[in-house]
């Protein structure tokens, strides 16, 4: 598993050249000031924004090479994304949110439910599986969002400030959990963070913007 992003990311009038490289089982931290384009990098890798030029190659597959008109849609990329603004579906409860991607991939309801509950347990969120996002605290929502991204066993895990609202104990738990999952699944994790202790705790590589 490898990821190579060399090119210009853009959103609206904002443009920036970035170089991001990641290998099997790595957690890569993306750091930088506000407005430096960290979230745009996450969106570009997820397929929600396109490169202006350059290339994004994952496992030798060109996901986005504008010069050759090569493009893989976000539905086909299979990235697990934890968005900065969480983006849980408000009309679904926690476990239904986690099941959403599995059901989209054709997993049967009962199997999806079982896997979703397992993943919620892994992030210590099973206690509020039946509650809707509106009734959860910021930290609880982030746990559910993390479970929703992890349940798909993604090849590329994209985390945009995933721990900004969780309490200290959970934060410490996640810092142990994340590298373990990435190692076990052979995935790549790219994590936007402002927290230098996160970087030194789990990142094997740092990209500064």
């Amino acid at each position: 598993m490898s990821l190579e992003l060399h090119g210009t990311v853009h959103r609206g009038d904002f443009q920036r050249h970035v170089d991001v490289t990641a290998d099997n089982g790595e957690v890569v931290a993306i750091v930088g000031a506000n407005g430096s384009g960290k979230s745009t990098v996450i969106h570009t890798i997820a397929g929600l924004a396109a490169l202006a030029d350059g290339s994004l190659i994952v496992n030798d597959t060109p996901w986005d090479v504008p010069a050759n008109n090569q493009w893989v849609s976000p539905e086909q990329r299979g990235c697990g994304v934890v968005f900065q603004d969480v983006r849980l579906f408000p009309h679904l409860n926690a476990v239904q949110n986690v099941m959403f991607g599995l059901r989209s991939g054709g997993v049967k309801r009962n199997d999806a439910l079982e896997r979703a509950m397992e993943t919620l347990s892994e992030v210590d969120a099973h206690a509020f599986a039946l509650r809707t996002p509106a009734s959860l605290s910021g930290g609880e929502r982030q746990r559910v969002a993390l479970a929703r991204a992890l349940v798909m066993k993604p090849r590329v895990l994209l985390l945009d400030e995933p721990f900004s609202a969780v309490d200290e104990r959970s934060h410490a738990d996640f810092l142990q959990l994340l590298p373990r999952i990435v190692r076990e699944t052979g995935a790549i994790a790219l994590m936007v963070t402002h927290d230098h202790s996160d970087v030194s705790a789990i990142a094997s590589r740092v990209v500064g913007l």
């Binding site: 929600l48 968005f83 603004d85 983006r87 408000p90 959403f100 989209s104």
Partner: peptide
Amino acid sequence: GLEDAARTMGASPLRVFLRVALPG
């Protein structure tokens, strides 16, 4: 943003419409 999130989870355009936009 919710529709984008659904797409990253592999939801087809029809599923995004039925399961995210319609309830919204």
